[in-house]
Nucleic acid binder design. Sequence first.
DNA 1: TCGTATT
Length: 480
Amino acid sequence: MATVTANGVQQENGFSTTNSAGRMNGLSIGQNTIPMKDHDAIKLFIGQIPRNLEEKDLKPLFEEFGKIYELTVLKDRFTGMHKGCAFLTYCARESALKAQSALHEQKTLPGMNRPIQVKPADSEGRGEDRKLFVGMLGKQQSEEDVRRLFETFGQIEECTVLRGPDGASKGCAFVKFSSHAEAQAAINSLHGGQTMPGASSSLVVKFADTDKERTLRRMHQMAGQLGIFSPMTIQFGAYGAYSHAQMMQQQAALMAATQGSYMNPMAAIAAAQMQQMAAFNVNGLVATPMTPSSGTSTPPGISATSVPSLATTIGVNGFSTLPQSNGQATEHVYTNGIHPYPAQSPTVNDPLQQAYAGVQHYAAAYPAAYAPISQAFPQQPTIIPQQQREGPEGCNLFIYHLPQEFGDAELMQMFLPFGNVISAKVFVDRATNQSKCFGFVSFDNPSSAQAAIQAMNGFQIGMKRLKVQLKRPKDANRPY
DNA sequence: TCGTATT
């Protein structure tokens, strides 16, 4: 890689420079110094930065720990919106370590609720590029045995044999070298080369999974379980095109849909989508009466009589449950009441599968309505993922007891009917990618927020009831 | 259980 100098001459990196051991990082040519960084420099992630601070404002704070090689505030690539975080690379590795220990969680920038974050960026990896997974070890091989096997390839920083609760070896281990090259050398020499006593096949030596790979694997597993890769995903995207009135109907449907004791929340929304088709019916596309249910409780603020045609309880599988006069729900029909639909095989128990089956059925009946957005609304601009945004005071809701499966999109779906949702954010544990079951929804006006509280606070989904309240103002509990 | 943001 070459560096263009101040006078336009190209120079190879790395000559006539000093590094962290030296005094100065830079390539000096006459009066000009081209900033250079250590080869083992650490890129730091800086979090909890007020959004009104730019590079020039942040520079002084960080410069006291050393010369800065690069400092970049993260901006949304489309909107240019400040993301509240930055990347920082010092010329010297040592400066990064100093800054991290001096600043990380140590002070809170003005206007922030939480202390500043200063830690190696995700891109720096967690040593995974020099960490090996070793499989097909003998069950009796100890850490020491594994060390002996690998020590000829370099410096071992960490060596762990995986064991079950009883302490018995699982026949695999992690070995972390001090460099990627050492790890690679071990792979080249050891992988597949010998079979350990008691092992069923030859030794496996490979790089350990990265976090990303683990996450992807988890997502694939979950997607398989939840059936996420379905037309439903596309359909969610089409919502912007619906009228507010339609959404109100849809919402009423959603509420009716989720009143049952347990319902998979994804299926709840799926059911609501089907109810929405019923809403189309009401709007005159297809004239078909809805069948009202009896004795169904309704969410606070929504009376059954206000949405008579939609006051239908939907069962766990996306069928509507129609209590008969004897009070026993024994008959299932699809919720639009239009098309009789053959009962599913009893072996199909996944509610989502069944809900999707229903949607696909509709898709066949109304191809335009269920076409991917790019086909149905070719003029629509690309939907830009929304940054988390706060609305004005009184417009921001805190929602707790969300179903584990709810993501930003489902949260938004749930609150769209009450007004313009400018942001819907479910908090996710970054380590596990699991929802923390709470989130925020921001509207552009207080009455939408109030309507949402009225309708959705206490709303039962599964075994839990949503808690929907105004978000605490940022300055609450602050004396000054 | 109160805005988490990773080019």
